[in-house]
Design a protein around this nucleic acid. Structure first.
Length: 281
DNA sequence: CCGCGGGCCTGAGAGC
DNA sequence: TGCTCTCAGGCCCGCG
């Protein structure tokens, strides 16, 4: 479920309990998500103070006093919750004072503050890794990422340059983390709707031959930022898809004022795309 | 190098 | 109620 806004919301919640705290104990009930954890996963975390909790694209990075970085990804179904109190092992399983653990609670971080951060991930598409300081800069997952859309350096010019050589559609190009980092299926749909651009349009048409942005690139860069900022700000104000204007709204009237289009669902690169065929060109 | 299709997992929801 | 089927917002890999 999580795209950039969701991961950012998780970061803001977790940093309150993790930053400045020491990780006292790490319990891995399952040490294999998308890939197996390093064998010394717990040992390299226990005793470490978390200096900062950062986000890059959809990754969370906890900077440790040792210089190592705890790298975490929520995949499709990952989530964290904070439980007050330490765990107790009973018959080989862990219990809190009042609540039992869920079958998909895979990792528990007990902090010096007394809080326990629990990572839950039913589909296990998530990721946990500990990266050494000298390997962080060359980490494959991180180095291939494009610009942060909410960063100063992201604008119509950088976006146009990234799209210029793309032979594919806008939908596929924006879903590519090398072009812009942090968008997923939902916010790609939302940003394209806001920018009035068709997901089927060729990505390269937003750039001139010399790489300069066409007006569509201006609109798109702005739409991406607006959609993400709004989603972060509104995180806890709405439920489920009420926040989305086109995603999962197949068959409904286009929410754009004055537009009488009906939201359509198509499949691109194996994933659903929702858009208005009338106002998105 | 690029773009596409398939695969990894489990759970929710629809339809019968 | 219960079964089966489809689909899901991530990412990586291998193929052409």
């Amino acid at each position: 479920m999580p795209e950039l806004p969701e991961v950012e919301a998780v970061r803001r919640q977790l940093r309150r309990v993790m930053e400045g705290a020491r990780i006292e104990r790490v319990e891995t009930r399952r040490a294999d998500l998308r890939s197996p954890f390093p064998r010394d996963f717990a040992a390299r975390l226990e005793g470490q103070t978390v200096n900062a909790l950062r986000r890059r694209a959809k990754y969370l990075l906890a900077d440790l006093a040792s210089g190592d970085t705890l790298l975490m990804h929520l995949g499709m179904s990952g989530s964290f919750r904070v439980v007050r109190g330490r765990t107790d092992a009973v018959h080989g399983d862990f219990y809190f004072k009042r609540s039992r653990l869920d079958a998909h609670d895979h990792v528990l971080f007990t902090l010096s503050s007394g809080a326990t951060v629990v990572f839950n991930d039913p589909r296990r598409f998530g990721q946990m890794d500990v990266i050494r300081a000298d390997e962080l800069a060359s980490n494959r997952a991180l180095t291939s990422l494009g610009p942060e859309p909410l960063d100063r350096r992201f604008n119509a010019t950088t976006l146009a340059r990234a799209l210029k050589s793309k032979k594919t559609t806008l939908k596929a190009a924006l879903s590519d983390q090398r072009v812009v980092a942090g968008l997923g299926n939902i916010y790609v749909c939302e940003a394209l709707h806001r920018a009035r651009l068709s997901p089927k349009r060729r990505a390269s048409t937003l750039a001139k031959a010399n790489g300069e942005p066409r007006p569509g690139a201006e609109a798109l860069a702005e739409a991406i930022q607006d959609v993400l900022k709004e989603a972060i700000a509104n995180k806890h104000r709405y439920r489920s898809n009420d926040r989305f204007r086109v995603y999962d709204h197949e068959g409904e009237r286009c929410p754009r004022r004055g537009c009488s289009g009906i939201i359509k669902r198509i499949v691109q690169a194996g994933r659903s795309t929702f858009f208005c065929p009338v106002c998105q060109r």
